[in-house]
């Protein structure tokens, strides 16, 4: 079973690294953590998995107990998996679809001023997004350098926008609003 480790618990590990854990402890720890979340600030989750982080001890803790708060130095050396920062991002709207390419109007999300026109190969569209490709469809395009499991890679990512499907209720609501507006407007 995958271990769920609490950050504060991690800090109190002894010099030999891993400590014994049992299911009751996990459940109680989880429950108490769930209870603690009922506060007025919504914070990032403290829960991390053992799979995501590797850890090295940085110094001898002063106290061997698992239940005291962190006695670690300022730096707890952990490594994070894949991340992608500093990308140039656009939202595009498809304007024309050709045999092998499509054109789009691109609005720069980093600098939303002037827009751009882009031409893309159809084979740049992920296969599962092809059904979303149509004139007027919106997609996100990002370009930059990603760190994927420690490897730095140049990336160009296209992802078509996916939103909740249009429902009969949405349709009816919009029509109702239009009907009300029709009655209220001061027509010539």
């Amino acid at each position: 079973m995958e271990t769920i480790l609490d950050k504060s618990w991690l800090n109190a590990l002894n010099t030999n690294g891993s400590a014994k854990i049992d299911n009751d402890f996990i459940y109680n720890s989880l429950q108490s953590r769930v209870d603690k979340q009922k506060n007025i600030f919504i914070d990032n989750s403290d829960i991390i998995t053992s799979q995501e982080f590797s850890f090295n001890k940085v110094s001898e803790p002063q106290n061997q107990s698992f239940f005291l708060p962190a006695i670690s130095p300022p730096y707890l050396i952990l490594e994070s998996k894949s991340y992608f920062t500093g990308a140039q991002k656009w939202i595009g709207h498809v304007t024309t679809i050709n045999e092998h390419t499509f054109n789009a109007q691109l609005n720069d999300l980093n600098d939303p001023t002037t827009y751009e026109i882009g031409e893309f190969d159809l084979n740049e569209v992920p296969p599962e997004d092809m059904e979303l490709l149509s004139v007027g469809a919106a997609f996100y395009w990002s370009v930059g350098k990603a760190n994927m499991n420690g490897q730095v890679e140049k990336k160009s990512l296209i992802r078509f926008q996916r939103m909740k499907p249009w429902s009969a209720t949405d349709y009816d609501d919009a029509l109702d609003k239009a009907d009300t507006l029709f009655k209220e407007l001061n027509w010539d």
Partner: peptide, 8 residues
């Protein structure tokens, strides 16, 4: 942690 996916 991947900026291209913040809007999605």
């Amino acid at each position: 942690k991947q900026e291209p996916f913040f809007e999605p």
